[in-house]
Simulated assay, not measured.
Amino acid sequence: MSDLSGERWQAEVDSRLARLELWADEAELADAVVGASQSTAGGGGTDYPDLDSWVADYMCATFSRPLGGEFRWCSKWREHREAVVRLDALWCSWKALSRDPSLGLSTWLHNFLDPQLIVLLSSRGTFSGCSSERNEPGAALCSRDALDHLLRTPVCPIVRPVN
């Protein structure tokens, strides 16, 4: 009788070991799939040599939008100083955060990309005067002459004009 109990016990142990090995194989496969998708989604450690390459090969290729109406883009984005500043900030933050395998890409999308896309692509944003046929970089917020005038004009009676 003890042999029968011993055989059942051994069969149960073998069965459980087989299930553990299967779970380990599944976990290893899942880790490989997640690692590959994070690598692909985040750029996979791809080093883009310059801002133009990153914008063309990653940004525009990955984050497409139907253009016109609500969303605007300008193929001559380099002529828009604000766009260059915003895209360069995105590229630098992407370089730093895309190497973090846990929350880097999620952080970058939520805290960096999403707010910048709103400003860059909105119908009242950086490319608001542009279309597929024309490029119109926005006017500066103020000219140097206007700024000088503001600095020389008293705002309240206590403040005296700068000479």
Rank of each mutant, 00 (worst) to 15 (best):
F63E: 06
D100P: 06
A140T: 12
E79K: 07
D50Q: 04
Y48N: 02
P137W: 08
F112W: 11
S143V: 11
T46H: 08
A83R: 03
T126G: 02
S15D: 08
A18D: 14
A11P: 03
D114I: 06
A36T: 11
I118R: 02
L51A: 01
A24R: 15
C74Q: 01
V155K: 00
A146T: 08
P115T: 03
A27E: 07
L141I: 09
R134I: 15
A96H: 01
L51N: 05
E133H: 14
D3T: 11
V33I: 12
K95V: 03
E7D: 12
N163V: 12
A30R: 11
T62C: 09
D88C: 01
G45I: 06
T107C: 09
D114F: 01
S143N: 09
W23C: 11
R19V: 08
S93F: 03
G6V: 03
R124P: 01
Q116T: 10
S75G: 15
S102Q: 13
L90G: 04
E79A: 12
A56L: 13
P115L: 01
L120T: 06
P101R: 14
L141P: 03
L151H: 13
F71M: 02
H110L: 12
E21C: 09
G35I: 04
C156E: 05
E28T: 14
G42E: 00
W77D: 00
L20C: 05
P115D: 06
Q38W: 10
S143I: 11
L97C: 01
T62W: 03
R78T: 07
S2P: 05
D88P: 02
V119D: 01
C92S: 13
T153I: 00
V33T: 07
R152L: 13
P49S: 08
C130L: 06
V162G: 10
V159M: 13
C92E: 14
N111L: 10
C60A: 15
F127W: 02
L151G: 07
L97P: 01
D31E: 15
S132F: 10
R8F: 10
G42T: 08
L29V: 12
N135F: 07
P115A: 05
Q116F: 05
E133V: 14
L4C: 11
H80C: 07
N135M: 10
S39Y: 04
L4H: 12
N135C: 15
G69H: 07
D14Q: 10
S143R: 09
C60R: 15
W94N: 01
P115F: 02
P161T: 09
R19W: 01
L147Y: 15
D57S: 07
R144P: 00
D14E: 09
A27D: 01
S106V: 08
R78K: 12
S106P: 02
G125S: 04
V155N: 05
C60E: 13
W108E: 03
M59A: 14
D52C: 02
R152S: 15
D148F: 15
W91D: 04
D100M: 10
L147S: 10
L97F: 07
S123Q: 13
W54R: 00
L113R: 11
A18W: 09
T126M: 00
L117K: 03
S75L: 12
A24I: 12
R78M: 06
A83D: 00
E28R: 12
R65W: 14
W94K: 06
R65G: 02
G69M: 04
T107W: 05
G129A: 09
A146H: 05
L97N: 05
P101G: 04
S37V: 14
R99D: 06
G44V: 02
C130R: 00
R81Q: 10
G68M: 04
